[in-house]
Design a protein around this nucleic acid. Structure first.
Length: 406
RNA sequence: UCCCCGGUGGCGCAAUGGUAGCGCAGCUCGCUGUUAACGAGUUGGUUGUAGGUUCGAAUCCUACCCGGGGAG
């Protein structure tokens, strides 16, 4: 039986895990390494579907939790799936909602970060079921082995996700690639807590996989990725990768928490445990430096909110590093955002104009910055891909990073 | 001409006797499986002018200047 999602490695670098390949989906190919645009609520904030191709977007990732709450997965299903819903013909993914249930439930207002930071107060990163803390601000997320009960961040209503329910929702949403329902705990959680959470994630992975394979029609049109957890602990990460590798997923997501410093060290060890012939997706990470680190460690696809979020918030990427479009010195800068960039924004508008739009709080500024950032990340990832294909990856990496350091 | 109200950092305001705060603007920074067009930090003031009362004045008194309103 031919699976809906297949992966072919075109080129594997000899002394590295870096590789270039093609993921085939029912809605077309994804040439990897690839930067997947985040479209949580069926919109890549600020960008029109019509523009996606021009911005180098190959595929999108939407979110089961958000679309379940609004507008509801049934409505998306009735329109023909999340891609159709948002007028996008290409490949799509959906995240399972595991991350959101925690970060929006108990964690809301508590400054949850995937990255461990020393200055975050201990209780600030609580991401799991402390009922006292939860009810303190009316939020709730209680985990049991069956699933998780939580309140909607919209109206406080009570909901329950199980691995089976998450898969059912993702079936309705109809993306080409769906993700197993996983659990997320704070990066600073002690190893015992991480282990417990990881083992629960493994059980949920098996159930997610089973729920998917049992639905013949959906199994025929959608692929499913398992999610590696284990926090910042190398032994847990490796164990998680080994455990999931034995399950017959169509690909693997690397989720959860890292500290920026040890992401590389852990990542390539994790990927060595995963089946070479299956695609690997690094969930939610995608600063330019991360693309190189991830690729070198064997990651095939990335997704990240950073191009659109930073764009909306006035920060743009350039070959020489990040830059705030609101800086006073740009008032009379009539050059493009990035002279080395040939995206439509850089070919059309000046820094002075976009600076003005931000100062004037005109929404076009947010849109243009988001467009450029998206084009920057997809183009960077494509260049990474080409450099792998022609064997110049390490050169390109060194060249880019030396110019990029700000 | 007289009467009333008001003059506080770029703008809008607060502080009525104890040595001036806030919002916005400005400046800078941060955002990594998006409740985020968000969040954080920060520079600016001899309080219209000149005197006086007081241990001490943005606050009270006098004069003048400026703005707004009213009377004539």
């Amino acid at each position: 039986m031919r699976r809906p999602i297949t992966f072919a490695v075109e080129k594997q670098l000899p002394d590295s895990l870096a590789r270039a390949g093609i993921i085939q989906t029912p809605h077309g190919p994804i040439k990897t390494p690839a930067f997947i645009a985040v479209a949580t609520k069926a919109t890549a904030k600020g960008l029109q579907s019509l523009q996606f191709k021009d911005l180098g977007i190959q595929a999108l990732i939407a979110n089961a939790y958000h679309l379940y709450l609004t507008p509801g997965e049934k409505i998306v299903e009735e329109t023909g799936g999340v891609g159709k819903f948002m007028a996008w013909e290409g490949p799509t993914m959906t995240d399972s909602g595991g991350f959101q249930v925690f970060s929006l439930g108990v964690g809301f207002g508590k400054q949850v970060s995937k990255f461990s930071k020393e200055d975050v107060p201990r209780q600030a990163a609580v991401a799991v079921y402390d009922e006292d803390i939860a009810t303190e601000h009316g939020k709730l997320a209680i985990v049991d082995d069956e699933g998780v009960t939580f309140t909607s961040h919209h109206d406080g209503t009570l909901h329950r996700f199980t691995p089976e329910r998450s898969i059912e929702i993702q079936h309705a949403l109809g993306a080409d690639i769906i993700f197993a329902f996983d659990e997320f705990v704070q990066p600073t959680a002690p190893i015992e807590e991480q282990r417990e959470s990881m083992e629960r994630t493994h059980r949920w992975a098996a159930r997610s996989l089973k729920a998917h394979r049992q639905n013949i029609a959906k199994n025929d049109s959608q692929g499913i990725y398992g999610i590696v957890q284990g926090g910042r602990y190398e032994e847990l990460r490796i164990e998680s990768a080994k455990t999931l590798a034995e399950m017959d997923f169509d690909g693997y997501g690397i989720g959860g928490s890292f500290s920026k410093e040890d992401i590389l060290g852990i990542l390539d060890k994790v990927n060595r445990e995963l089946p070479r012939e299956k695609p690997r997706h690094l969930l939610g990470i995608g600063e330019p430096e991360d693309i190189f680190i991830g690729t070198a460690a064997g990651i095939d696809t990335f997704d990240c909110v950073i191009p659109t979020r930073n764009g909306r918030n006035g920060t743009v990427f350039t070959a020489k590093g990040k830059m705030s479009m609101e800086r006073a010195e740009l008032a009379r800068d009539f050059s493009p955002i990035d002279a080395a960039c040939n995206c439509i924004v850089c070919r059309t508008y000046t820094r002075a104009y976009i600076h003005h739009l931000f100062r004037a709080k005109e929404m076009l500024g947010l849109v243009l910055a988001s467009m450029h950032n998206m084009a920057f990340l997809t183009s960077l990832t494509e260049k990474v891909r080409l450099s792998i294909l022609d064997g110049t990856f390490e050169n390109y990496r060194a060249e880019f990073l030396s110019a990029y350091k700000r």
